[in-house]
Design a binder for these strands. Structure first.
Lengths: 230, 230
DNA sequence: GAGCGTTGTTCCCACATAGATACAACCCCG
DNA sequence: CGGGGTTGTATCTATGTGGGAACAACGCTC
């Protein structure tokens, strides 16, 4: 059971999605909307219709010429390339959040200041963004493994000297190394242990192994609380 | 033009999405599939059909009783509540990535080790995950503003003592404070300045103002490179 | 000027999704 | 023992999305 998504960029009511990006990219490589459509196994009429819908919303995307050498052809505008680049970044970020592991902590909101909440969990207090959980007391806090930074306790920054508001002391419980990225679980004295994804070079530099004392920190603005079901 | 998404959890070919979550939640509050369906303005037949599809894939979600006091009724199983909780966390994370600002840096891959790439940008070298940009030299790197941690330069951790591989020295260019969260732009000597989202209490503690020297750091595993269009 | 392969336009059809309706089965309760 | 409101089941219909085909318009090239 794994997470998935469909990303889109919305402008003026229409949503530019992955199939639209595919269409634009294929027009770019084929040089014509006609060839792009049947390279993708789509109908020409639908492809043109979709393209004009998009252009009505976001402006010119494809410079189309009918007639001329070879009968004509189509070429992407600079705006189309920018759009594709932005969509690709969006996709990359989404796949990251879809695939990254997270540690889930359950707790209660004890204070709230704007969309920033202070949550009491069995691992201790932490601060997290709680945008839509308005008024909910019982919350679940998800800590993305790629947002957790590990520090050498001897050289960890003082609490006032960094903008990482959440800080837990603990010991390494396990290190699982892959090619360039390692999964480190840190026992922070709670039922659930904190998972951090770090580079293998960080594992070396910090000398991480089972039992190594570490300080784990993560930013409040990178942590999200949502209402707990039931 | 803003980013959007449709999240889902896939199991055994079927995708549990937002409308499914809405259905389950309404069954929970209404006590019956029948009332849930027309509270949502959906047809009963389709709702039941969808529910059985989901249950074939993920197991029992709703304990349904036909006949009995009040004619019967339906109740969520614990598995359904877990599923809802997980979906809500997923949604929260996705909305975070959809809404967060990011700094885009363009550069070239100069080294690669597994999915970890070293990228040369005009702001300097940085390390980022580059999963799908296989072999691409020209890349764009997106740095999420909520993953950037700011440090007091006098008390910034030594480079070897933290797992945050990317570190830039700079000066605060602007501070925009909202209710509990502030947007800090940091000039790191590049064309594009780095944007960080931090809490307003961090702004106070670090004494951030225009011109304040800071160290900005972010993890390689929280940064993603994708191929550059063209 | 004819040929050619485009873009643009129009109309029809296939298919999947979901609403509408009818009806059987069920079982507590008064 | 019947009423009531539910869960199941079957069938028909509306609707939206996209494919297919036909044809006009276009402009470079030979």
């Amino acid at each position: 059971m794994d997470a998935g998504f469909e990303a889109h960029l919305r402008a003026d009511g229409v949503e530019f999605d992955a199939t639209d990006a595919e269409l634009l990219r294929t027009i770019d490589s084929e040089g014509s909307l006609n060839r792009a459509a049947d390279a993708l196994g789509r109908s020409y009429s639908r492809s043109l219709q979709r393209l004009t819908e998009l252009e009505e919303a976001v402006g010119p995307l494809v410079a189309r010429q009918r007639g001329g050498s070879g009968g004509g052809g189509s070429e992407l505008t600079d705006e189309a390339r920018d759009l594709l680049a932005r969509f690709q970044r969006l996709r990359a970020e989404f796949t990251g959040t879809a695939e990254v592991e997270e540690t889930v902590l359950f707790g209660r909101v004890v204070a709230r200041e704007g969309e920033l909440a202070t949550v009491e969990t069995d691992a201790g207090r932490l601060r997290a963004l709680a945008p839509d959980s308005d008024g909910a007391e019982a919350v679940q806090v998800a800590v993305r493994a790629d947002t957790v930074t590990l520090h050498d306790p001897g050289d960890a920054p003082a609490e006032v000297a960094t903008s990482a508001r959440n800080r837990f002391e603990g010991r390494v419980a396990a290190v699982g190394e892959a090619e360039a990225v390692a999964r480190v679980t840190v026992d922070v004295g709670a039922e659930e242990s904190l998972v951090a994804i770090v580079t293998t070079s960080s594992v070396e530099k910090l000398g991480l192994a089972d039992g190594t004392p570490v300080v784990a920190s993560f930013k409040a603005t990178a942590t999200r609380a949502s209402p707990r079901e039931r």
